[in-house]
Amino acid sequence: MTMHQTLSPMPLTAPPKATRVQFMAEDDKAMLRAVRDLTKGLGEAKPGIYWPDMLLSAGVGYAGIAIAILSGSLVVKIVAGLVAALALYRALMFIHELTHIHRAALPGFRTGWNLLVGIPLLTPSFMYEGVHTIHHKRTQYGTVEDPEYLPLALMKPWSLPLFVIVAILAPVALIVRAAVLVPLGAVIPAVRTFTWERFSALSINPEFRRRPPEGEFIGRVRWQEAGVFVWSWLLIGSTQVIGWQPLATALVILSLTALLNQLRTLVAHLWENEGEAMTVTAQFLDSVNVPPPGVAAEIWAPVGLRYHALHHLMPSMPYHDLPEAHRRLARELGTGSTYDGANHPGMAVLVGRIAKSTMGKRAA
């Protein structure tokens, strides 16, 4: 045996990542303490970041739609449409921030977002407020009561393409809801109840039924519903003046936006829970971070959503502070830690993992 052979290091393999199953009964309390201690000094929502980001995203998106409608060049239409879809996607994702930030943190931002983005895209903030927070409740995440959870990894293979493709119909469905169901519901209580329970929440769980609004939330729902009703009929009425082509172009662009969001939703979690209540750590490990160095995730998971698992540990952390929070935790806790278990390399790997799991179900 040569000296080189004697001193050659044994091949190293990366330790297996922590999984949800390991922490179903008990939290990793050391990690949770580290999250609390290492993120001190973060957490203040900054108007100087929120407002310019939202306004620029919305402005670029609407400009892109206008160019796609008015241009005579097919190439320009396609490029403008893609830019518009991505920009409006980013602008729309601020609805997620609105559900978590304190109402006093960003004066006027909720109203401004609804007027500039939520109502024009027929997705006002009430469709997420009071719904998304259920997804973060300790005893309801991943259960049948969670409006934003389906065990997709445990379902049949055909469920994945259906889950993604159905999103293409979202813009048309939103017009029907605002223009037809909302006014009918104003005069027919049964339609109003049906529309509220089934079509007034950004939910992916078909079993979810939304409870009636209460208190001051009722007033917010009413003015936002009035806004989408008026806007939907302005869109429909515009076809009698300028034809169907502008509206059809906008709907195609918004269908792409909805498709992007559905793809992001598909990889926001591992979807491996069968309805059991989970610890906070188990919820974290069933969720997904796609941290740098890759830049693609900043496009398909904007406004902090590339740190979705970390968000489940700190739901009220503003999106602009999540990158720094992740850097601190990754540096301190290191590779192989429980925290590292929620970090994944990208969308393709995650889709492949979920698809492989569903194929296993077919074989079973």
Results as ranks from 00 to 15, higher is better:
T133K: 08
N289C: 10
G130L: 07
G130F: 07
R90P: 05
H135T: 04
P15K: 10
W300M: 14
T39N: 07
I218R: 13
L160A: 06
T338F: 07
S287L: 06
V182C: 07
I299T: 10
Y339F: 06
P52Q: 03
I175D: 09
M24N: 10
T2A: 14
K156L: 14
V117C: 02
V117M: 02
P212I: 06
E26I: 05
D53S: 12
P345R: 12
D146E: 07
I78H: 00
A66E: 04
E216F: 12
E225I: 13
L235K: 03
L154Y: 08
S71W: 00
P124H: 11
M278G: 04
A30K: 13
L121P: 01
R192M: 15
A68S: 01
P147D: 09
Y128D: 14
V79R: 00
L184N: 07
M359I: 14
P151D: 09
K77W: 00
H132G: 02
W300G: 06
L38S: 01
A14C: 09
M24R: 13
W223E: 10
V131L: 05
R138F: 14
F109T: 08
G243W: 05
P171E: 10
K29H: 14
R222P: 03
G108H: 13
V295I: 15
A68N: 01
A179T: 13
W233V: 03
S357C: 12
P124C: 03
T239C: 11
V21E: 15
T195R: 11
H4Y: 13
T133Q: 14
K17S: 06
R138I: 12
W300A: 05
F126H: 15
L55N: 09
T281E: 02
D27W: 02
Y319H: 15
L86E: 03
A87C: 02
I354Q: 00
R33S: 14
L350V: 08
R20K: 09
A18H: 04
Y50T: 01
P293E: 10
L55I: 04
I242W: 12
M31H: 02
I101F: 11
L322I: 07
A34C: 09
T195C: 12
L260R: 02
G112S: 10
Y128G: 15
D286P: 00
L154W: 11
A14F: 07
V144T: 13
A309K: 01
W51G: 04
L115I: 13
T265W: 01
P147K: 04
H320Y: 09
A80N: 00
K40I: 06
N261M: 09
R210S: 06
I299Q: 06
R362K: 15
R209N: 06
T143C: 04
Y128E: 12
V241G: 03
G352T: 04
K77P: 00
P157C: 10
T99M: 13
H320T: 04
H311N: 03
T143I: 07
R177I: 14
I95T: 11
